[in-house]
Design a protein around this nucleic acid. Structure first.
Lengths: 234, 234
DNA sequence: CGGGCGATTGAGACATATCAACCTTAGTGG
DNA sequence: CCACTAAGGTTGATATGTCTCAATCGCCCG
């Protein structure tokens, strides 16, 4: 990982609304800026952290994309989270010693380094920060629950596409065309299904005009139909 | 729900180590006791909360057991959590308006009523409480992740049995015999599999002498073998 | 131009769901 | 005390969805 000259400025960051610096007091943002002093560049394919690494710092995605993955009970890589700009890696690990997962950059990525001991020391004075962390963890739990309710392949593909597209829409000016930053293989690994099954479901969605996608670029997508397929409209 | 005469006493509670009042300062425990003033009795089969209920209060199980469930994409009940004494229902909802799930008592159950607005008002002065909430949410996220890594029926049954038995062992003096407070049907619903499949896996475990269970009572259980089946020992 | 990765497609194997039946037990009321 | 009932548990046969294996294609990149 290379350190950039760039000095992080939470108060003017392009994804401050998404990141944990949203809804903080001016005072708290200033505190954060004194704690978060480094941005590092991570090459595509390079790891940001490995399982069992000590949790000395956590990371916020500044630009790029990364995936969290673990080994399942058969030793295969299962993707457990995609991190987009503004997302925080390891926020749920404030009280843990070791990383329980690996995170690797899918494309060239810049991450803000957040020193965890300093944050914990200052946390008494960061009341809104506390609330914000709570909200983010809360959202994570609720989001996971949603994924777990979908059992069949079609619903699961639908819920993942919804998840990714909605998150991208928070970040880009135009809804379409939209470049998916993850491959079909990675999406299938996120859902714990084979890439062949994922591909066949996607083909079906294309035939049904639910999504118009080619070479990883979404040209159009019927979010309502997708929600229906996912079984969310009941 | 009936209100009991019993007044909650966090400082002397039999499950304080498990509940969110663990590791608090004496001062904080006293604050908690002024906020948590009610214990209610919930009959077997009676709901503690319904989906879309406003989050005005959350609950801690004092005695008994309850299950959280949601409707999956096919409209079937999927159990998303079992709550044992000391567990808190809705801790991840401090910043939410509505309950996203239903919770129903599996047996006669007593719950402590935790008024959420008061907690939020006092949260500034409850620093250790904040940390404890963080830790519990953190554990919940990590625990869910573990469940998601298991794909095949055998591993999933194993991980659930481990989860339930370990949690019971935190609460009872003798390891065996151990009465499982949940039915096979409920356990299969927790895993999103059919009760027939669950039953067949359980039969296999009995044949392999991994677990000795009859009529919901565990007479013995080889936790190491169970962990191996779950694929946790790699 | 070659190599490799991601995407695509088909055929067959396998695990789990579904359907149907029956058993066991605890609880209920006569 | 027994007959009845309902709920949970057990078992077998079959259906179905997804995985696995294998092959091919297209495209980007060196």
């Amino acid at each position: 990982m290379k350190t950039m000259n760039l000095r992080p400025r939470c108060s003017t960051c392009h994804v401050k609304k998404i990141c944990f610096n949203n809804a903080l007091t001016t005072e708290e943002q200033i505190t954060l800026e004194t704690l978060i002093t480094e941005i590092k560049l991570v090459a595509k394919g390079e790891h940001i952290c490995f399982a069992n690494d000590p949790v000395k710092r956590i990371y916020a995605i500044f630009t790029g994309i990364a995936k969290e993955y673990r080994l399942d009970n058969r030793g295969r890589e299962l993707v457990t989270e995609f991190y987009l700009p503004g997302n925080v890696i390891g926020l749920e690990l404030l009280n843990k010693n070791k990383y329980p997962f690996n995170v690797v950059a899918i494309k060239e990525t810049a991450v803000c380094i957040i020193p965890i001991e300093e944050i914990k020391k200052d946390i008494v004075n960061l009341q809104f920060f506390n609330n914000r962390v709570l909200a983010l963890l809360s959202d994570k739990i609720e989001n996971n629950a949603k994924f777990n309710l979908m059992t069949d392949a079609k619903s699961r593909v639908a819920i993942l596409l919804l998840n990714i597209i909605e998150r991208l829409h928070q970040r880009v000016p135009n809804p379409y065309p939209l470049e998916l930053p993850v491959s079909q293989v990675e999406m299938s690994q996120r859902l714990g299904m084979s890439n062949e099954t994922f591909n066949r479901v996607l083909r079906k969605f294309k035939q049904d005009n639910i999504i118009n996608i080619r070479k990883g670029i979404v040209f159009n997508c019927d979010m309502i139909a997708l929600r229906k397929v996912a079984g969310l409209s009941r």
